[in-house]
Computed example of a mutant assay.
Amino acid sequence: MSSRKGRKDAARVVREQLAQERRRKRTLWVSVAAVFVLVIAGFTGWAVFSEQRSDEFTPPPGADDTGTGIVFGSGPVTIDLYEDYLCPACKQFQEVSGETIDQLADEGKARVVFHPVAYLNRFSTTEYSTRASAATGCASAGGKFREFSEALFVQQPPENGAQLSNDQLIDIGAAAGLDRDTFGTCVRDGTYLSWTEHVTEQASRSEITGTPTILVNGEQVNNWSPESIRAAVEAAG
């Protein structure tokens, strides 16, 4: 009798263990499924957020159809310039070839699209790259983009610091011929901060990895000399 009872007890224990194992597996699969759903939802949410973020911007007057740059000139060849106002190499490029770029636009040989990206905020305690870029949107709205942009490079502050304040940017704009009140309000309100984010994000998606980057009809020009840029424009035209 005791032997039979022992076998029954052992069988009952085995059944309980099997039932526990089935419950454990069901709980595990439910947890895995829940995590999977959350991961998918997270990726979906990030994709939606990124798409909305890149779409929610106000382009300034003078921007191209994509809202990624300020246009001047209307020639048959397109020059895309990607520059950061905190970039020392960009200042050097402007000193060497900026006048040539302006001449090509003024001569009707090139349509210049200037993309003021904000790549170098890591070298600023005040996100100067972003603020300077946004301020150029205000300058474009006031019809003085080129004058203000040139002045920013002339008065470029060093990396690793606070750089120029908004009040100093406004002073530079006023000296470039912009209405102090209108331009100042635009800068202080951050009217074109979302536009700067869009310009920078789209440049990154286009695999623009450094500044300055110069494209002539989509082809990168690695030699920044005036002669090389003119030759590239003439060859593309």
Rank of each mutant, 00 (worst) to 15 (best):
P157H: 05
E201A: 15
D106G: 06
A10M: 08
E83P: 02
D189F: 05
F93P: 05
N223R: 02
N223S: 12
G42D: 15
A33G: 15
Q155S: 07
E51I: 02
E16D: 15
Q103G: 08
E51T: 15
Q202V: 07
H115W: 02
A19P: 00
L104C: 10
P226T: 11
G143I: 09
A110Y: 01
D9G: 08
N223V: 14
G184F: 09
L120E: 14
E16N: 07
T44C: 09
A203L: 09
V37D: 02
N166V: 10
D64A: 13
D102N: 09
E197C: 01
G137Y: 00
S97F: 05
T44Y: 06
Q94H: 12
A110S: 11
L18G: 00
T130A: 12
Q155H: 13
R53P: 01
A139K: 00
F93M: 10
F123L: 03
G184Q: 07
E227L: 10
E147Q: 12
T182A: 13
V77P: 06
T191K: 08
R23A: 15
F49P: 02
F153K: 00
S3R: 08
Q92I: 11
D189N: 14
A176H: 05
V199S: 09
R111D: 14
S3Q: 11
R7Q: 08
V96W: 04
S50W: 08
D181N: 10
V39M: 14
K109H: 06
V39I: 15
I79T: 02
F36H: 00
K144Y: 02
D55Q: 15
G45R: 03
R131Y: 04
T68A: 05
Q168Y: 11
G143L: 06
S74C: 11
W195E: 00
E95Y: 08
M1S: 13
G184R: 02
H198I: 10
P61M: 12
R26A: 09
C186A: 12
R53I: 06
N223K: 04
K144C: 01
G69W: 01
N121E: 14
V221A: 14
